[in-house]
């Protein structure tokens, strides 16, 4: 048997976020989502600094809704230590109202399991009471209402 030893790699990075990410995070602190408008009129959320198609520098940020549609999802029945929720939950790509692209976050279905999840369902952000300008200022998304599920 080879000798083994525990080893921890820890980086305490404090990142400069720049104007675009900074505005998005400031928006989260202020309980709203901001997207980036491209020259072709698409609204990308989360906002990139450059147009993914042309590379053009982007700067026009617009508010989008804090509810939207699940475009795809996966179900975690046994959360890992680092996961944002420590109960069974879904990862989801959520296309917010007014946005043309979906962002990654988690969905807490409350009581019940993955039978509560479906592609196309509507979800709404649950904001944390204390927000610091971080993607986890959104505690999770929640099903908007049982009737709102659309396919």
């Amino acid at each position: 048997m080879a000798l083994t030893a525990p080893y921890v790699l820890e980086y305490t990075y404090r990142r400069s976020v720049g104007p675009v990410v900074g505005q998005f995070l400031t928006g989260l602190r202020d309980q709203k989502f901001l997207g980036m408008k491209t020259s072709s009129g698409r609204i990308l959320v989360p906002p990139p600094e450059n147009d993914p198609e042309t590379g053009e520098t982007l700067s026009e940020m617009v508010a989008v809704g804090d509810a939207g549609v699940v475009t795809t999802w996966s179900w975690v029945s046994a959360p890992r230590k680092n996961h944002p929720l420590q109960k069974p939950f879904a990862w989801a790509l959520v296309k917010l109202d007014g946005a043309d692209t979906a962002m990654l976050h988690v969905v807490d279905v409350g009581e019940g399991g993955m039978e509560k999840m479906s592609t196309g369902m509507r979800v709404r952000a649950r904001w944390k009471a204390e927000r610091i300008g971080h993607v986890t200022d959104v505690a999770c998304f929640e099903p908007e209402s049982p009737q709102a599920v659309t396919r």
Binding site: Y7, E10, R15
Partner: peptide, 12 residues
């Protein structure tokens, strides 16, 4: 917001 904490901790 100008900065964010982004800690990475990995155990081996």
């Amino acid at each position: 917001i100008k900065r964010m904490l982004a800690p990475v901790r990995l155990e081996f």
